[in-house]
Design a protein around this nucleic acid. Structure first.
Lengths: 126, 126
DNA sequence: TCCATTATTCGACGAATCAGGAAATATAGA
DNA sequence: TCTATATTTCCTGATTCGTCGAATAATGGA
């Protein structure tokens, strides 16, 4: 059961349904918990600061990213929890009525996440 | 590594980033491989046939659903493979550089898909 | 062929989204 | 306080999207 409501999910999907914003989100996912300052994100993705600010605001409104101020900079980072909730929302329906089809999703997502096992903390962790 | 390009992913996310279309897709995911005829989908979701036809066309263009004709009806069904590819695309970045953060996603998605294990074929199975 | 059923395409219009210049705000340092 | 840096907000034209009435296919049966 996901915590996300359908409207929340639509907002998150809308935020990601845009080439530039998807690039931002993926950059932040790769950047990890420490995140990146807005200006650095704009520079790396070669986007005007005001346009990037709008993109960041849309992603933040959807809860997929967070921000914190650090001096003159505003640091953005991916919200992995919210991202997980979105993924849960997307996959939860496969279990309603047709659990047998879930296995394909489970296998594919599981292998895509095999690095989690490589990192040595899938479930048990150290 | 996902097979999906970023533009493909954006198209699929855009297709899902709409309340009515998300409802259609989730209905079809629950309906399984056999799918449902267009008219039945429109009836269940209380939507005019032409509007539903447009929604179905958008979902199909994004490859998230397929269609086949059966007499006068056109049967739509979820494309679980394409759905898996989209999920893979979304999660693959967490492995680039920050494998440790993947574990949370793996755990959440894994438990959301616990029904796959119940259904008895999650890779190893028990 | 004629008709009923099922589904798609066309056309049009309001609503929403997009991008970025210009101006405003926030912070730090001198 | 004054200035430079970092970011956001405001604004607006251009584009795209969403909806659905009406018209147009496609199919099967009589």
């Amino acid at each position: 059961m996901s915590i996300l409501t359908a409207p929340n999910a639509v907002e998150a999907l809308s935020a990601l349904a845009h080439g530039a914003r998807l690039d931002v989100f993926r950059l932040l996912v790769r950047a990890g918990e420490e995140g990146l300052p807005a200006g650095e994100i704009a520079r790396r993705l070669d986007t005007p600061a005001n346009t990037m600010s709008t993109s960041l605001a849309i992603l933040q409104r959807s809860n997929l990213i967070r921000s914190r101020r650090d001096g003159r900079s505003v640091i953005y980072s991916a919200d992995y929890g919210a991202f997980s909730e979105l993924l849960s929302f997307l996959v939860e329906d496969c279990c309603d009525g047709r659990p047998e089809v879930c296995s394909r999703l489970a296998n594919v997502v599981g292998s895509a996440l095999s690095c989690a096992a490589d990192a040595g903390d899938l479930g048990e962790k150290q």
